[in-house]
Nucleic acid binder design. Structure first.
Lengths: 222, 222
DNA sequence: TGTACATCAGTGAACGCGCGTTCACTGATGTAC
DNA sequence: TGTACATCAGTGAACGCGCGTTCACTGATGTAC
């Protein structure tokens, strides 16, 4: 058998690559618009325009608008999960007191919820109607909780709670709930409490609930 | 000056009473529909039908649909505030350990969020867009926090926190955020944690954060 | 007491707008012979 | 190499539906003389 001369990998990739790029542009445009003006205000026509594509192209890739949005949020969850795994790797925190680790994690989450607020709010609103999205969120919470627990375990921390694993899960859920509520309702007019203040109190809550030692009175390095 | 013979209070009340009743029916119908099928699915036409009134009658009382919904939520907030004041009266809790008081309050809130879930979710979704509604929520939180603080103070509790008043406010906010998130996202398909379990952990969080003594190992009376 | 008119409250068909979705069409690229 | 045809990807005007809002109209009640 003579091997084929034309390399098989190159059969018809230009077309596929082209449509792949279109899809990528559509998803990016949708994400940007949701972040800027909210899910409710984002129309398919506008997504198409922003993606320098057309309405029909959107419907060639997605069954309907729902499916398109689901894809956007799915990508977001994948990124979030990957970020969580990287951030919560025990190696990253060698030599730092646990209280500081918690403080860093909390302020990182606050920053994330601020920077990606639009998308998160859109997601939260959508997840209130679509159980599938709510399921994504739940799974993400579980992943984060597992990693946090593994991190604490690797550091040899002993939690003051009858069911430590569940306690960590609950604690993660509580913090995420608080951040979500803040993202949803913080009026930009009059911010009730500063971000630093929220961070401080959330850390205090977490440490107190889990029975971890609070930070020394030395200045923290964020 | 001869006093007017016809009592002034009775001038034209029948008409007013009639329209007052219509308005009441409209508000009640709107509330019921929001609770049953969510704000997004509730149309003016359906509200009118349910109230055995007409679309025009709605627009005679309210500038637009927004105003109607705002009225519904305003009433809800008034009820909530009144309930909070009554429930948090120090007299009500004489002779009970603080940990039990907190437990009772938390489980009361959980019950409320379950029973009135539809309305609360609708409100939360709406408040994400309308700063005015978010403001209502904030004010309610402040009221509750003040009453809780007064209650603790009346009981002679000393909180383990540099700014006790702010700590109580934060704690109330945290619990409300958690309940809201739960109401928004709990898939009815697979409840992640039982209500009792959430209650237990929320109490634990609150007590640990505020530095209050946990309950004795005796069975609680709810 | 009777008649004419004014006001209040309400009715619901019709209007209009926004937006998701469809579909007849175009252009580019690939394939057969 | 050239011609005819097939497929892929995309285009955007047109359609249709849902729903908030309006408005010409009805009926009941009150007021003037």
């Amino acid at each position: 058998m003579a091997p084929p001369i034309t390399p098989l990998e190159w059969v018809r990739p230009p077309q596929q690559a082209r449509s792949q790029q279109t899809l990528e542009r559509i998803l990016r445009a949708a994400e940007a618009l949701i972040a800027e003006k909210g899910v409710e205000q984002t129309t398919v026509a506008e997504i198409a325009r922003r993606a320098e594509s057309s309405v029909g192209a959107c419907y060639a890739r997605f069954a309907d608008k729902e499916a398109l949005l689901r894809s956007v949020f799915e990508r977001f969850f994948e990124q979030a999960a990957a970020t969580a795994e990287s951030v919560l790797a025990p190696e990253r925190w060698h030599g730092q007191p646990t209280a500081d680790v918690v403080a860093s994690l909390v302020s990182f989450m606050l920053r994330t919820y601020r920077d990606r607020r639009g998308l998160i709010v859109g997601l939260a609103l959508r997840a209130a109607r679509e159980p599938e999205l709510a399921g994504f969120g739940e799974r993400l919470g579980t992943i984060v909780a597992e990693r946090v627990y593994a991190l604490l375990e690797a550091r040899g921390e002993v939690l003051d709670h009858p069911r430590p694993k569940e306690a960590v899960h609950f604690c993660v859920w509580l913090v995420l709930s608080a951040l979500e509520a803040r993202a949803l309702h913080s009026t930009q007019l009059a911010p009730p409490i500063s971000e630093d203040c929220i961070a401080e109190e959330l850390v205090r809550v977490a440490l107190a609930y889990l029975g971890l030692a609070p930070a020394e009175a030395t200045p923290l390095t964020t």
